[in-house]
Simulated assay, not measured.
Amino acid sequence: MEVDQAEQLKELKKENARLKRMFADEMLSKEPLKETLEKSCEPLAQAPDRRKACIRGQMEQTIAA
Rank of each mutant, 00 (worst) to 15 (best):
M1H: 06
M1F: 08
E2V: 09
V3A: 13
D4F: 09
Q5H: 05
Q5I: 13
A6D: 09
E7K: 09
L9S: 11
K10N: 05
E11F: 10
E11W: 07
E11D: 15
L12G: 03
K13M: 11
K13F: 08
K13W: 05
E15Q: 14
N16M: 09
A17C: 06
A17V: 07
L19S: 10
L19H: 03
R21M: 12
R21C: 06
E26A: 13
E26P: 02
E26N: 10
M27G: 04
K30N: 04
E31Y: 05
E31P: 01
E31L: 13
P32F: 01
L33P: 00
L33C: 12
K34M: 05
E35S: 04
T36H: 07
K39P: 02
K39M: 11
S40C: 06
C41N: 00
E42I: 05
E42C: 04
L44F: 12
A45C: 03
Q46G: 11
P48Y: 01
P48M: 02
P48K: 03
D49R: 03
D49Q: 12
D49V: 13
R50P: 00
R50V: 04
A53T: 00
G57A: 07
Q58K: 08
M59G: 06
E60F: 07
T62Y: 15
I63M: 12
I63F: 12
A65K: 14
